[in-house]
Design a protein around this nucleic acid. Structure first.
Lengths: 345, 345
DNA sequence: AGCGCTTTCTCAACCGGTAAAGTCCCCATC
DNA sequence: GATGGGGACTTTACCGGTTGAGAAAGCGCT
């Protein structure tokens, strides 16, 4: 990719115009002491007149700072488009990056291994100053890889999955238990859960928590399945659950995201079941979507934007020398709407 | 943002290990002639052993190539999360970038003016080799700005909006007319349209096309409103349209995206109206969402992934010296599903 | 043996900044 | 009146690559 034939202005031009050395220009633009107000002003004026901004490439070469952070997301494109989660997460990340005039390098990948390669390239090629890692799985290959590289990263996931990496996480287990307890308190005994991708760590955590909650509440009819997070999979899972003979049919279903819950809602409608009379549905992540359906979807709400922001903040802390640690963001809370009610006995 | 205290290996180390000069290493890694097979192999072996990859920062400094393209998206974060369009678009862009080992610099902005600033900074700071511009409006300030900068960009939008910039566009006007003709052919006379943000160029184009189609078909009851693309706005618009007295009430509604169509569907349900018997609904962009509702939503389908890919391809063409031009991608086509039917007279 | 031509590498300048060390000048101090 | 200490800049050496101008070596040919 070659540059356009545009006469680009450099620090030298600015220095010449302001009648100073380029060192002085550098000092001025980095707000370092050692320049008089007058000179500083002259330099800024010259820069403004010439439309100059420091070449970040050159800057990071000599100062070995890189004002870019990486984020690779690994999900099939088809699914990504739909999951409100990521865009909201990204927007949270950006909100913090912007304050530090830092940019986000985004990459969609197909596999974790591909991501490992990307992250290595980015880091070795000095393209990024650090990275945010999402979607951890058991024995995630990214953990040893980034440890080996000595690359600053914040891992978005439960500390049990992220090894020694600094992590930002939300207490999914507690949230799942709250969801189950809520449905049980409404009177539901046969509660089902349509989970996300089985390989993902937080799915495993939620699955375990669901089992535990069901056991501790003595819910014999609890069951759960893993999907791929897609609406189709959610619809399929719901259909399969709701076609069971009534004594086995769940009276409440918890979904791992909102897309699947929406799909579940329409499967219920298609089967002539009324929500919440015949079956209660509870979504996860609570994007705008949950308020757009009829009935509106009860959900475990989660400040995804804030989650992203916290991840970015933590990354900055790490890069500027704070030690590693784990940062917990608020646990998703139940937001009851119209899709949950006591079972119709 | 300072680098970690990691002993990073440079081209010099590789050269030393392979017993050659750094110029030789550079030749090898850029696949340029002038090296024997044997040396080339030795160099690659040394690089592999040391885990070296060329520092892209240094490379772009000396070669003035930048393997990064920019994309700034201007929509309130709240809305972004939901619109499947962007993530799908981005994934299309990425699919092409990846082939060129190029990365995407993403930024979410609040206003066009902010975007102008970002793009200027990116370009002047040599952060990007070019940019993809989306969401054009009338007299868009980005057009003169990037022309002045001489920055390679591809504008995603109708040529009438993008001035002299190379553009990639889809024929929304024809698609709108097809939608209206289809509904009219079903027998609808009172057709409404819930449009997107009025300030956006493609909304204006669709609005004009809708008017023209209605006039040419002699549909007296056609009407349309502009919204902000959000589900809430879609719900509000639908509610206001459907509460009109029956002789004025539209029997079919076209939406500018799928989120609003989903919202419209639930408003109909909430009002006790049956879709498509009492009212037909037609969505736009046709993401997975349209197949998840009950009834499923008829939609104007659009290969958004391919749209993004074409934009990226065009940008590469531009950067590598192809002249400007306009590239049209396929017009959205009608995909009838269960939400449209003849009106119930 | 001498000449020209390749092929294969090396060398050194340069890209546009940063940063540490150095220069100058002015002013206070003993 | 010499000394010292800052402030305000300038100089210069990098950062880690690329690039074009040589240089050394090998080879065919007269």
């Amino acid at each position: 990719m070659t540059a356009f034939p545009a006469p680009r202005v450099t620090i030298k031009d600015v220095a010449a115009r302001a009648g100073v050395s380029k060192g002085a220009v550098s000092l001025a633009f980095n707000h370092k002491p050692g320049l008089s107000e007058a000179t500083r002003d002259r330099i800024f004026a010259a820069a403004r007149e010439l439309g100059w901004e420091p070449n970040l490439t050159a800057r990071s070469l000599s100062s070995s700072r890189v004002d870019v952070v990486g984020l690779a997301i690994c999900r099939p494109a088809r699914m990504l488009g739909l999951e409100p989660f990521y865009m909201e997460f990204v927007s949270g990340v950006e909100s913090v990056l912007t304050e530090h005039s830092c940019s986000l390098l985004l990459r969609l990948v197909r596999t974790v291994d591909e991501e490992v390669g990307i992250q290595e390239s980015w880091w070795r090629g000095r393209q990024i100053g650090g990275s945010i890692l999402v979607d951890f799985r058991a024995d995630d290959p990214r953990v040893p890889a980034v440890e080996r590289l000595g690359m600053p990263v914040v891992a978005v996931g439960h500390p049990s999955l992220t090894g020694s990496l600094t992590s930002v996480w939300t207490d999914d287990a507690t949230a799942v238990k709250e969801a189950v307890r809520y449905l049980a308190a409404l009177g539901h005994r046969r509660i089902a859960r349509v989970g996300g991708a089985a390989a993902l760590g937080h799915t495993m955590i939620r699955t375990a928590a669901f089992d535990e909650a069901a056991r501790s509440l003595g819910l014999a009819g609890a069951r759960q399945v893993a999907t791929d997070y897609s609406g189709e999979a959610g619809a399929r899972a719901t259909r399969s659950m709701l076609t069971a003979a009534p004594p086995d049919r769940p009276t409440a279903i918890v979904y791992d995201n909102d897309i699947m819950a929406v799909a579940g809602l329409s499967v219920a409608a298609e089967m002539g079941l009324s929500v919440p009379r015949d079956v209660s549905l509870l979504a996860w992540d609570d994007s705008q979507l949950c308020r757009l359906t009829h009935p509106t979807l009860s959900a475990m709400s989660h400040d995804v934007h804030g989650f992203g922001a916290e991840a970015a903040r933590t990354l900055f802390g790490l890069i500027t020398g704070e030690g590693p640690g784990t940062h917990q963001v608020p646990t998703p809370v139940l937001t009851p709407r119209a899709s949950t009610a006591p079972p119709d006995v």
